[in-house]
C-alpha cells in the first residue's frame, strides 16, 4: 500500500527536494511549512511517517513533535527529524520530545528512503 509522508520544513527548497526524493520512491507526500502548519495538516490527514525540521518559525520541531505525541490519533506515528544540527544535546532534546529518529542534512536520497522504510510498518 502506498505510504503517505508528511514533511514539515520552513524551507520551500527543502520541501520540494524532499517531495521529489520521496515521490520518486513511490511515497505520497503532504507538505507543511512549520509546526503550526503541520498540526493543521495532521487534523486533516493521517500520514504514515512524519519528517520534520527543527529550526522553524512559529512552532519549532520540538514543539511540533510534542504536539503530535499529545494527540490521540498520531501519538504513535514515527517521526523522523531532518536537521542540519547534529549536536547530541539537541538530538536528546528531540528524543525526549518523542522523535523516532534523526537524519542529518544534507541527506542522500537512499539513506533517507532507507530511514523512512525502517520506521514505517
Amino acid at each position: 500500500m502506498t505510504k503517505t509522508i508528511l514533511t514539515v520544513d520552513d524551507s520551500r527548497m527543502m520541501r520540494e527536494m524532499l517531495a521529489k526524493v520521496l515521490k520518486d520512491a513511490g511515497f505520497v507526500v503532504v507538505q507543511a511549512e512549520d509546526g503550526v502548519d503541520g498540526v493543521r495538516v495532521l487534523a486533516e490527514c493521517s500520514p504514515d511517517v512524519i519528517i520534520t525540521d527543527i529550526n522553524m518559525p512559529r512552532m519549532d520541531g520540538y514543539g511540533f513533535i510534542e504536539a503530535v505525541r499529545g494527540t490521540e490519533q498520531h501519538r504513535a506515528k514515527p517521526i523522523l527529524v531532518l536537521s542540519t544540527e547534529s549536536d547530541p544535546d539537541k538530538k536528546n532534546r528531540a528524543r525526549a520530545a518523542g522523535a523516532t529518529g534523526w537524519i542529518v542534512k544534507p541527506f542522500n536520497a537512499e539513506s533517507l528512503i532507507g530511514a523512512v522504510r525502517r520506521v514505517s510498518a
Binding site: V39, R40, M59, Y62, E66, A67, R93
Partner: peptide
Amino acid sequence: QVPLVSVPLEQKADVAAAAAASP
C-alpha cells in the same frame, strides 16, 4: 555519556491557534 534527562520544552504547542492560522 548521554544524559537521560528530559529537557523542559520552551515552546508548548498551541493546537487551537495552529488550526486557526490562515494559509
